[in-house]
Amino acid sequence: MSYVIVTPYFRESPELLRRCIDSVAAQTVATEHILVADGVPQDWIDETNVRHLRLDRNYADFGDTPRAVGALLAVSGGAAGFGFLDGDNWLEPGHIAACLDTARRAGAENGGVDYVISRRALCRPDGSRLPVDDESSDVHVDTNCFFLLPGSFHLVAHFGLIPRPLAPICDRVFYDMLRQRGLRSAETATVTVNYHCLWSVIYESVGETPPPGAKPNPPWAEINEWSAGLSPAEHTAVRKLCGLEP
């Protein structure tokens, strides 16, 4: 069986991308790594042991288009399971093994699992972990924490269909779709995803000064304003593109 990690990247530094690539190469389970350049390829990646694809331009959708392209290649290439990993994040060596073990254990109890949710640590730019717990999966699952199994493969193309105004919350849209479809999930017990955190609110919550380049929360006001301006027919079309119920 083959397993794959899909990494969309845009302008991440070579240092961050090397950390990402090395973490996939260090998995205790053999794992193929597909990197998809979102219009700004870095040629040095061709010399590493990964598959490196170049999109002709930047699609400006928070990595959704390259993520979808890589996911479809993973599925069509016969992967037995795959996950996503943004270029500035990295995995613990036992990440894939933990996902597979979780799926096996849960599958033995309930007849099968369609996807696994990994736990993540929120990290400072220097790699150290922030003293804060991640959100509950009842609320949110980050894109990097999905490990998809064959029972969810038919939905991966929706990453490339999510309308651009919803791209900042693509992980929330995708997770809503998975839950609405009634797919079976299981959660790992250990933290295996390291998330390069630049959300100002996280630092402020623990009394730290946000690092340079820190970001505000997703633009909820703009998203709500865009959604409110849709006609009923447009709203229905958007939900179809997102794979959501009418």
Rank of each mutant, 00 (worst) to 15 (best):
V40H: 15
H95D: 08
I45K: 13
L161A: 07
G63D: 02
V50S: 14
T236P: 06
R124G: 01
P219N: 04
W199S: 12
L230I: 02
R54F: 00
G112H: 00
F82G: 15
R179A: 06
T143E: 13
Y59F: 12
A98Y: 10
A221M: 08
E15S: 12
L241V: 03
D64L: 15
S136R: 04
S205A: 08
A237D: 09
N58Q: 10
R18M: 12
R179W: 12
G39E: 04
E12W: 01
L73C: 11
A221C: 05
R57D: 03
A60F: 14
Y59E: 09
H33M: 05
L166E: 05
E187L: 06
E92W: 11
R19W: 03
D86M: 12
N144L: 14
D64F: 15
G107F: 00
S2L: 11
A71M: 06
F174G: 03
P14N: 07
A233T: 08
C242I: 01
P246E: 10
P14S: 04
R119W: 06
Y195G: 01
L166N: 09
W220Y: 14
G229H: 03
I117V: 07
I202K: 06
T65D: 01
K240S: 12
A157C: 02
R104L: 07
H95T: 14
T188N: 00
E225C: 06
S118M: 11
T28F: 01
L122V: 05
V50W: 08
W220K: 13
T65V: 01
D133I: 12
D56N: 09
